[in-house]
């Protein structure tokens, strides 16, 4: 029995040695990235959305994408995004960078993280790019544009679009009590982090004003 066990262990170890990154991993990583596109673009010169544009993220100094307002949790980190740093961050963003704005809970499977990083690695210009502005215009985010203008729009976008489309918000019609209850339901049953009091108030007021029972902005 002991012999058999050690043979099995040996076999497992032998097969568990990670293989070098190949195209197939990156391809799978690209599919995995679909979970990220609500908040991140990855094209050269793509816009910052809820999160920063990720083109060229490998090797970039942490929290240095132009025009993005990073949390203190990210600006407080030293160094650049190495594969290992990204691997740790993606495992559990809120553990690695306590206080990060990124609502994503993390990728628990090491293969998922490895594949995603393999794909992120491909997002570089092999030759020197003339300038990022010449390559592609920043696209406005359609989801952000969908929200009615008013106090609380930015905060509503930042705190909702991480998990679901703004289209879902804009088709609702609820009063203040119902919006409050909806946020409580998302916290209780949908894994949302609670909003602090004044932020919650601002967002609920915005929603009840623009997406109230009379549906002033119903998109149909």
């Amino acid at each position: 029995m002991r012999i058999l066990l050690s043979v099995l262990l040996f076999a497992t170890t032998a097969f568990a040695i990670p293989v070098a990154t190949n195209a197939q991993d990156a391809e799978r990583g690209e599919k995995l990235f679909r979970r990220c596109v609500t908040c991140h673009t990855a094209t050269d010169g793509g816009a910052n959305k809820v999160g920063p544009n990720l083109f060229g993220i490998l090797g970039r100094d942490i929290a240095t994408r132009d025009g993005f307002r990073y949390s203190k949790a990210l600006t407080g980190l030293e160094g650049n995004w190495t594969e290992e740093a990204l691997n740790q961050y993606l495992l559990s963003p809120r553990t690695y960078a306590r206080g990060t704005k990124m609502a994503f809970a993390g990728l628990k499977k090491s293969k998922d993280r490895a594949d995603l990083i393999a794909w992120l690695k491909t997002l570089t210009n092999s030759e020197a790019s003339p300038s990022s502005s010449a390559k592609g215009a920043e696209e406005p985010d359609a989801d952000f544009a969908l929200l009615a203008a008013g106090s609380g729009k930015q905060e509503t976008y930042d705190n909702c679009a991480g998990c679901h489309s703004i289209k879902l918000v804009a088709q609702q019609g609820m009063n203040k009590a119902e919006w409050l209850e909806t946020i409580e339901w998302m916290v209780d049953e949908q894994g949302m982090d609670p909003l602090d009091g004044s932020l919650n108030e601002l967002i609920v007021d915005y929603l009840a004003t623009h997406y109230g029972r009379d549906r002033p902005n119903f998109p149909k």
Binding site: F104, A105, Q190, G191, M192
Partner: peptide
């Protein structure tokens, strides 16, 4: 399918 929050435990 996975939970919208990305959590594996839900």
């Amino acid at each position: 399918d996975g939970h919208l929050s990305g959590r594996d435990d839900k």
